[in-house]
């Protein structure tokens, strides 16, 4: 953009908008900055009055403690639970979505029921689920959490992938059917490649939802498969002496999300609006 060729008034307006944009961005990123910065501070710097806005040097003792005490296992647990459940939800959900999109299986009612599953507040189901899990000995195990997150993410996957699949021109599939593929092959060789980006984006979001969940994890984990948000709350207390751990654990639990979402930037809007807005 050749700013020099714009009239002075336009340059001024552009300048003001840059200023506004920068101020707003700094405002919103400040807490994130604060979190990251604390994680690099020494205890002396953390508990300094007045607060220090920049640590004297970047050092990793807060992270080191997490590794030494084995607390990072929570991150690993989160990875396993979120990763496996997303994978299953994506496969089953996409297949289901294909049927809904192409054959209208179950009509509008089934689709509405599925999305209404998404609307049910977790708090309303977490208690009976807890009781059932206690009954079947599934509390504090990988299987129970993965099953739960799979179910929790399925409506989202089905809803989103239905939208992506509907966008695939029907003629591509028909052409393949005429050319010699059967339905299974059409799904694998035509539909999958066509919705690959949508599939990736949806996977990222299901992963993030499972990764970020607190309530289910709080109720259904004890010691064995504690996920990172639950581990984080263990550092809360009347005393503030766990600040370094809180910050370090938060950063560890946030970085993967930042990376994943940055990669999926193009699909962000469609992803978070449940497909209502196609960015």
């Amino acid at each position: 953009m050749k700013v020099g060729k714009l009239p002075a008034r336009k340059v001024r307006i552009l300048g003001l908008r840059y200023l506004g944009a920068t101020v707003v961005t700094l405002l919103f990123l400040f807490p994130v900055y604060w979190l990251f910065m604390i994680s690099f501070k020494t205890p002396d710097e953390i508990y300094h009055v007045p607060p220090l806005w920049v640590p004297a040097q970047i050092q990793f003792s807060n992270y080191y403690v997490l590794f030494k005490d084995g607390d990072v296992v929570a991150i690993l647990n989160s990875l396993i639970v979120a990763g496996v459940s997303s994978g299953i939800a994506i496969v089953l959900g996409t297949l289901c979505a294909y049927s809904l999109a192409r054959f209208g299986t179950g009509g509008e009612n089934l689709a509405m029921w599925i999305i209404s599953q998404r609307m049910i507040p977790p708090i309303a189901v977490v208690f009976p689920i807890f009781l059932l899990y206690v009954h079947f000995g599934m509390v504090d195990g990988f299987f129970g959490l993965i099953l739960l997150y799979t179910a929790f993410n399925l409506p989202y996957v089905i809803w989103m992938m239905r939208g992506y699949i509907v966008d695939v021109p029907l003629e591509l599939e028909e052409s393949a059917l005429v050319d010699g593929l059967n339905r299974w092959e059409v799904i694998w060789k035509v539909v999958f490649p066509m919705v690959r980006s949508g599939l990736m984006a949806t996977s990222v979001f299901t992963f993030v939802f499972a990764w970020n969940d607190f309530l289910f994890a709080l109720v259904l984990t004890r010691t064995e498969v504690i996920t990172f948000p639950v581990q984080l709350t263990h550092y809360f207390g009347g005393q503030s002496n766990f600040w370094g751990k809180i910050a370090a654990m938060s950063v560890l639990g946030t970085l993967p999300i930042f990376v994943a979402v940055s990669v999926m930037q193009r699909y962000l809007v469609r992803g978070i609006s449940l497909g209502a807005v196609k960015g």
């Binding site: 707003v24 961005t25 919103f28 990123l29 807490p31 994130v32 979190l35 993030v208 990764w211 970020n212 607190f214 990172f228 948000p229 984080l232 709350t233 938060s250 639990g253 946030t254 999300i257 930042f258 979402v261 962000l268 978070i272």
Partner: peptide
Amino acid sequence: LLVLPTVISPIV
């Protein structure tokens, strides 16, 4: 940059 707060875990 602006979307970062939205994707953070609410507990964080």
